[in-house]
């Protein structure tokens, strides 16, 4: 096993709003290994972005990590002071967003923004920083880098801006890159280019990536490990193969049934009935139970604990406990 570079332990993040405490992230745990790609998947509102923002500590004003630990190489970054955190965000961990304009300032040229990031976080001089900026643009596949350095963000296409944002995030060679739906607004052909670029850069530079997306196709294409989230909680986590071929949570199974694929083109899709949960009104038991076809009495009453369901595969679903008990008792499901 390789080195665990980031460990999130029992993370709870809430927003304190006028209508009450919104428990956006509710006991999330996972670890990220150096040089690996970890995917966080789930539908909108499941807490993916808030998990990412908690790591970067860029939560909106009313948001707060209320419990848990975030360990970088064993150190709890939640105890960092402002300076330590600034340096963490610059040198250790970078984030890119769905909308590149979140990170790019429309009033400055690409070059000055890239150089500023480089000057701030490395000990290069101005001349070296400029060289590095051009080098980074070449690395992310932006043609005519010298010309681009002098251009403003609005002069570039959506795909190009996304590349520039990646260049910016990687300029200081972080150990960890968090990508929050980086290709969701792009066409599939441009998405394919950007995802390929990210995989290439990962191999070249060796950083670890946390890929946040709602798209199971994107996850299948690039992730080593996967976390499936629902209602601010982790349903299951494990290797991509474990999640896709041996799903051990009713929500994951439901998701995989509901998307069109080569095998169900001639059949009706099997949707997950009902509507997503309201975080202000969380059920006592499993977050998914109101939409689960197999929900049992215990699912309504008690939150399922995470349990091992295979090598490198954890899931929080009472069905697994039931299965285990049946197997012990020698009952089969025929």
């Amino acid at each position: 096993m390789s080195e665990k570079i980031l460990e999130v332990k029992n993370l709870h993040t809430s927003f304190f709003t006028d209508s009450g405490e919104v428990k956006a992230v509710n006991g999330v745990s996972f670890s990220l290994e150096a040089g690996k790609i970890l995917g966080i998947v789930g539908e909108s509102g499941s807490g993916k972005s808030v998990t990412a923002y908690s790591i970067m500590q860029i939560l909106a004003g009313t948001g707060k990590v209320v419990e848990g630990e975030i360990l970088y190489k064993g150190e709890n970054i939640l105890n960092y002071n402002k300076n330590q955190m600034r340096s963490f965000r610059g040198k250790v961990c970078s984030i890119i967003f769905q909308d590149p304009m979140t990170s790019l300032n429309p009033t400055f040229t690409i070059g000055s923004q890239l150089m500023e990031a480089i000057l701030l976080h490395t000990d290069r001089n101005k001349e070296q920083a400029r060289e590095r900026a051009a080098e980074m643009l070449t690395l992310v596949g932006v043609n005519e880098p010298e010309k681009r350095l002098k251009q403003y963000p609005h002069e570039l296409s959506g795909g190009m801006r996304q590349r520039v944002m990646i260049a910016m995030a990687l300029a200081c060679e972080p150990d960890i890159l968090i990508a929050d739906e980086p290709t969701t607004a792009l066409d599939v052909t441009i998405q394919a280019q950007i995802l390929e670029l990210m995989q290439d850069l990962q191999k070249k530079l060796g950083m670890a990536i946390i890929m946040v997306t709602h798209d199971l196709g994107v996850i299948a294409g690039m992730c080593d490990e996967v976390i499936v989230m629902y209602g601010g909680r982790v349903c299951e986590r494990g290797t991509a193969d474990a999640i896709f071929y041996h799903s051990a949570h009713e929500y994951t199974k439901g998701l995989l049934r509901s998307i069109p694929s080569a095998s169900n083109m001639k059949e009706k899709l099997v949707p997950i009935e009902g509507t997503p949960i309201n975080l202000l009104n969380m059920p006592k038991g499993c977050a998914f139970c109101s939409r689960c076809d197999n929900a049992m009495k215990i699912c309504l009453e008690q939150k399922p604990d995470e349990m091992w369901v295979g090598e490198d595969h954890l899931a929080s679903c009472w069905m697994n406990v039931k299965k285990e008990m049946q197997e012990k008792a020698g009952v089969t499901n025929e």
């Binding site: 296409s157 795909g159 052909t189 299948a220």
Partner: peptide
């Protein structure tokens, strides 16, 4: 276009050859 569609199946995704279009 078809080769760029993300397929929600890791084995297919790994073995598939993408025909990446240059440019926009």
């Amino acid at each position: 276009l078809l080769s760029a569609v993300p397929i929600p199946d890791p084995n297919i995704a790994r073995s598939r050859k993408r025909i990446t279009l240059e440019g926009e």
